[in-house]
Nucleic acid binder design. Structure first.
Lengths: 177, 177
DNA sequence: GAAGGCATGTAATGAGTTACATGATTAT
DNA sequence: ATAATCATGTAACTCATTACATGCCTTC
């Protein structure tokens, strides 16, 4: 038997289907791209591959349209709902990972190369500033739609980007070394 | 020919070897675990696998000890130094990814289930609070060692965790919905 | 009815993850 | 000397990533 351990991608898909059902992989992609995918990118190929596994495991049902694009419409099964609910209620969720190349570069920035460090900081302020603007406009544009919790997700992103901009500005102004 | 595109893991190893050389994979692991690995975990198996590739590509040299543990000692080649330098100076570094299951859970928290949301927020405050404490003690313990830039890395982590604690505390106190 | 982009997928590859395994050192 | 833990790796497997491919649908 040896059931697979569900991955974050699994729960993403379960949650998306719960929200959107009945829905296609493309529907999921649309929602992801303007929300959680801003912070945690899930390539669309995963949103096609993962449901196949979840159907095999009995967490989703799939109905393929007869004509036209023959799209696959997914729905949650009772088992899928239970898996989602169990995950949502579980405590002890690990702290998230921050995979930031800028952080890596900072870590290895040569001590003493002040100019390189300042250039790096300027680059980061720029990048995080752009992201901040993007999130703000997202909030304006979709503020009405989207559940309060989904908006809260964007809010955390805004705070994170704000923190990053402040941090890198500090570095630019008072470079260590 | 078709040279592989170096990954973040590649640059991590190049940077670590630059800092520590001559060094073993275990040396790299030690440093990673108390620094960058706090935010961006790199399993030790990668720190053994990646240098093998980098040696094959001419970015590192490997010398294996004769006796004892027959450890492999790595050093940067000129090519490796250049790759590292090029990466450090490149602009347009993408914004980092935040892979946070707590964020996913928030996104899918059922609208209306106030209790579940509060429980989630409490769990997150706890987890991020612990991480915050860990980073603080790290700063105390290794504050003297470590380059200023490496300490700055920890500093960004502290700010990020502080932001997270504030955010989730707000959620707990004023849950949306 | 032609063009372009939207929508829906598949394939190949390499990397990441987890688990396992074992030899060397250190402590008692 | 023995146990315990540190140190060093390997193996199997899955997943993520990138690129490609193509059909549908709209619009003009």
């Amino acid at each position: 038997m040896s059931a697979r351990v569900l991955t974050p991608t699994s729960y993403l898909v379960l949650g998306l289907v719960h929200t959107l059902q009945p829905c296609t992989s493309y529907d999921m992609k649309q929602l992801v791209n303007v929300s959680i995918g801003m912070f945690w990118p899930f390539p669309h190929s995963q949103l096609y591959a993962e449901p196949v596994r979840l159907v095999a495991e009995g967490h989703l049902t799939e109905i393929q349209e007869e004509g036209g694009r023959r799209r696959r419409l997914y729905r949650l099964t009772a088992s899928g709902e239970e898996a989602l609910r169990g995950w949502l209620h579980a405590t002890g969720t690990p702290v998230g990972e921050v995979r930031d190349e800028g952080l890596l570069k900072l870590f290895f920035a040569k001590s003493g190369d002040r100019d390189a460090l300042i250039a790096l900081a300027a680059d980061r302020v720029d990048a995080h500033g752009q992201r901040l603007a993007l999130l703000s406009s997202l909030r304006e544009e979709f503020g009405a739609l989207g559940s309060p919790n989904q908006m809260a997700t964007i809010e955390l992103g805004l705070r994170w980007e704000t923190t990053a901009v402040e941090f890198w500005s500090d570095i630019a102004e008072h470079p260590p070394v």
